[in-house]
Simulated scan of single mutants.
Amino acid sequence: MRRFKPSSQALTQIAGAVVLAFLVMPIFAVVPASFNQASFIKIPPEELSLQWYSAFIEDRGWMSSLFNSIRVALLTTAIALVIGTLAALGVERLPKRMRPFVIGAVLSPLIVPVIMISIALYYVTRSIGLYGTVTGLALSHALICVPFVLLNVSVSLQRLDPNLARAASGLGARPGYVFRTVTLPAIWPGVASGGAFAFVLSFDEVVISLFIAGYGAKTLPVKLWEQIRVEFTPVAAVGSTLILTFTVVLFILTRLSARKRNSAAEGSQ
């Protein structure tokens, strides 16, 4: 009888799945905790109930923070997409010797500790009147979201044949039309991935939000932080579950969109 010997690739995939499960499963533990009928966190819950979801919806503070998070994340995504995409297009046209310096400058917010960035943004937003506003918070979040858009769009730009844009320009198309019909459809997977990263980072960001949000633009992570400092009830698990749900659904939609576009591109070839 022939014995089954798993290949090294299969062993690597199994090990990766185990490590991923070890890292992810504690995060998903908040989901059953949000359906707990008791007034305290217990995993697994003895009885299931939606009472804490009702309490979340009926609480004006929780709902206000949720809508603030969505508004800030959408505005941050729009700002980061515009700046990051333009930066990626500009870097692609620079001489190769200058590209590392420009990319390093754009990626520098990822190197500086977030607490230092938060302190600096606090003083800047206070001085220009944007402290405690959705606009100020979105601009602050965009600072750390732009690098992810730049990286994702740059990867898509490297796969783009520059002769396509040159051919369109040679046929008389204007730069704006070339970008809409040639460049943007080709780099759309990178734009979509960068937008997903920007939305999730903004929606989950807590350190910068603690410094900039104030009372008028309190987001869901800030509300969670304040609630946990007082007491950790299943309502906080509901908020954590909503954040987790937004993140998972957004990345699934992004992956499906990218796979569909890649399939259409392969079919056209």
Rank of each mutant, 00 (worst) to 15 (best):
L224D: 07
F28D: 10
A120C: 09
S156A: 11
T133R: 01
Q9P: 10
F56E: 00
S169H: 08
L107E: 09
S202W: 12
G176W: 15
A120D: 02
F246I: 15
P95Y: 05
G16W: 09
K223F: 12
V82H: 13
A192C: 13
Q269A: 13
L150T: 05
E92V: 09
L224Q: 00
S34V: 09
V248W: 02
L220Q: 01
G104Y: 10
L137Q: 08
T77S: 13
S64K: 04
Q269Y: 15
G172S: 05
L81V: 10
P162M: 00
S268V: 15
A73T: 11
V102C: 06
P45I: 05
Y122R: 09
K218F: 03
L137I: 09
V146F: 03
K260L: 12
V149L: 05
L184V: 09
M116Y: 13
I243L: 14
N163M: 12
T125H: 11
Q269W: 14
R229F: 07
S263G: 14
L244C: 12
P45T: 09
A142M: 05
I252E: 07
M25I: 15
V206M: 07
V182R: 03
G214Y: 03
L184Y: 12
V114Y: 04
V206G: 02
V124L: 15
I57G: 02
D161L: 03
T219E: 00
A80M: 12
A15D: 01
T247K: 04
T241L: 12
V206Y: 06
L184N: 07
A120F: 07
P162I: 00
L253I: 11
F179C: 08
P234D: 00
A198P: 08
L139A: 01
L210N: 11
G16Q: 05
V31Q: 06
S65T: 00
L139I: 12
L256H: 04
I27A: 04
S140D: 10
E226C: 04
L50H: 08
P45F: 06
S65G: 01
R99Q: 15
E47Y: 15
T135C: 10
F35M: 13
A21S: 05
L11M: 10
M1Q: 12
L242A: 05
S34Q: 03
P221A: 02
E266I: 13
P175I: 11
K5A: 14
G16R: 07
P45D: 04
